[in-house]
């Protein structure tokens, strides 16, 4: 059995932060740093580079339609520059000869808002929170008036 893993994903996004980050995915270490480009290094779990593997990149605003396609080089590397106007989770899929893997890369500072909480936007959450607080205040005022 050949099991593919995306061994290392290196992400440089200079625009926002210049901090190196470390995360763990697919049982291996995935390092990425903030810069303007994303560099993927794809290998089989034997360590062999996925030379010539097909790469498909999906932007967060249209996850069903490929934003970019390409091919890994001899070292299993592929580099691209994400559209800075599309913050969120960028997905990169790498496939070769019946084996494939996928890596999810957060880009931009509004990732939390994009992924959301239960499907509500930030505006909806703020407005609903204000309504609830206002409701408590109003109820308290109502009963305080009755007491008086």
């Amino acid at each position: 059995m050949v099991r593919l893993r995306l061994v290392t994903a290196l992400v440089w996004l200079l625009v926002m932060l210049a901090l190196p980050l470390t995360a763990y995915a697919h049982g291996v270490i995935v390092d990425y740093m903030v810069d303007t480009t994303i560099k993927i290094v794809a290998r089989y779990d034997t360590g062999e580079p996925m030379a010539g593997a097909q790469v498909v990149v999906y932007a967060p605003d249209d996850p069903a339609v490929p934003w970019l396609t390409g091919v890994c080089d001899e070292e299993g590397c592929f580099t691209f520059t994400p559209d800075a106007s599309k913050p969120g989770i960028w997905v990169v899929q790498v496939r070769k000869a019946g084996h494939g893997g996928m890596v999810h890369i957060p880009v931009g500072e509004s990732v939390a808002a994009t992924t959301g909480v239960g499907g509500f936007s930030v505006l909806q959450i703020v407005l609903m929170s204000m309504c609830v607080i206002w409701g408590f205040v109003g109820t308290a005022l109502y009963f305080s008036r009755r007491g008086a």
């Binding site: 239960g118 499907g119 509500f120 909806q124 407005l127 609903m128 204000m130 309504c131 609830v132 206002w134 409701g135 109003g138 109820t139 005022l141 109502y142 008036r145």
Partner: peptide, 24 residues
Amino acid sequence: KRMLLPLISLLFVASMSLVGCAPS
């Protein structure tokens, strides 16, 4: 103070409308 209750009710309805419009 008389305006408070209608205002609270209005906000409650608006809140529920927002929930109803949510993609969930």
